[in-house]
């Protein structure tokens, strides 16, 4: 299946969960947050959230700003 992560399309294996994706991308759960299709998926739900074909995933963190 294909999903868009931070604006770029990626080929992902079927049945991949959000927690697995973040682990595979090397993203620290602390200090980051994820939205799937414009809805925040809270941390405790990452394990149970399966990614679907066509999902748009945003993964953010804090950067310098005013």
């Amino acid at each position: 299946m294909r999903a868009t992560i931070n604006g770029t399309e990626h080929e992902l294996r079927d049945g991949l969960t959000l927690a697995e994706l973040l682990h595979e991308l090397g993203i620290e759960e602390s200090g980051s947050a994820v939205a799937v299709n414009e809805r925040v998926v809270r941390r405790p739900l990452h394990e149970a959230t399966k990614i679907n074909d066509g999902d748009a995933i945003e993964i953010i963190h804090a950067v310098a700003g005013g």
């Binding site: 604006g7 200090g31 945003e58 993964i59 953010i60 963190h61 804090a62 950067v63 700003g65 005013g66």
Partner: peptide, 15 residues
């Protein structure tokens, strides 16, 4: 602080 996308090519390191 501001909120931005994580760069997937360099997701680790000090933030």
């Amino acid at each position: 602080v501001a909120i931005r996308r994580i760069h997937l090519d360099d997701p680790s390191g000090k933030t």
